[in-house]
Amino acid sequence: MKPPLPPPSPYYRNYATLREIETRLKSIKNIEKITKTMKIVASTRMGKAQRAIAASRVYTEGDYEFFGVSETKAPEEQEKTLIIAITSDKGLCGSIHSSIAKTARRKLAEIPNADVVTIGDKIKVQLLRTNAQNVVLSFNGIGKEAPSFYESSLIADEIAKLGKYDRVEVLYNKFMSSVAFEPTYVDAFTAESIDASTKLSTFEVDEESGSTSGLAQYSLANTILAAMSEGYASEIAARRNAMDNASNNAGDMINKYSILYNRTRQAVITNELVDIITGASSLG
């Protein structure tokens, strides 16, 4: 009596069947369609995002010119620092969010007791993994559309409720060009640092109406808005590039798999012919 055959090993490999290659090819084609569409969507948003940056740069320039003339500086000794890190909720845009997370981590290694406010889910998830004790407040649902002053003033309002900080820094991706971005820190000056500016006496400041604290609040909202617009444009540009690369790679894979598909089909036909001919000749 013959011993029974061993069961087929699960690791047993065979040449891919025609059907398998076909499904694979179809799914890559679908992925290519999706990435292409996402690229087109990002491209159309790009123009709008760039216009938003141009407007917000003029808008914040006024603040910066004032801080420049009055020589406002952030305090040197890092007593109580707040870092506002800005990303968005959506991925599929290359290294844009992780570069912000990396920069924030480097800063937190320098100032381990700094507080962090995160804007956008991506940075929140990344920072909660390593620096959960530093994150004090987080926002999400931002960055679907070009940011507005309404959003940034609501955020600034919530941040003001956290209490006093000696230094507030906003971390965002500065839009350098449509292919380059740079994680950048910008200071949002507190009322105390504005009051302590060396050349503030150049200006006549109406102290009764509490101008400097009002100015500090307003400029925090402005700084956040400017940072959000820059971050938004960088993200859109990065997504367009990422999706462009993805579409190209999908195209390459489609080429490879169509060749493999045709070759396999040819092999199947040849095998069938061989079978038929051998069968016929053995009969004859």
Binding site: Y59, E61, S148
Partner: peptide, 12 residues
């Protein structure tokens, strides 16, 4: 004069 709004600049 620069008269600027967050979304547009009227005078630059």
């Amino acid at each position: 004069l620069s008269l600027a709004l967050p979304h547009t600049a009227i005078y630059n």
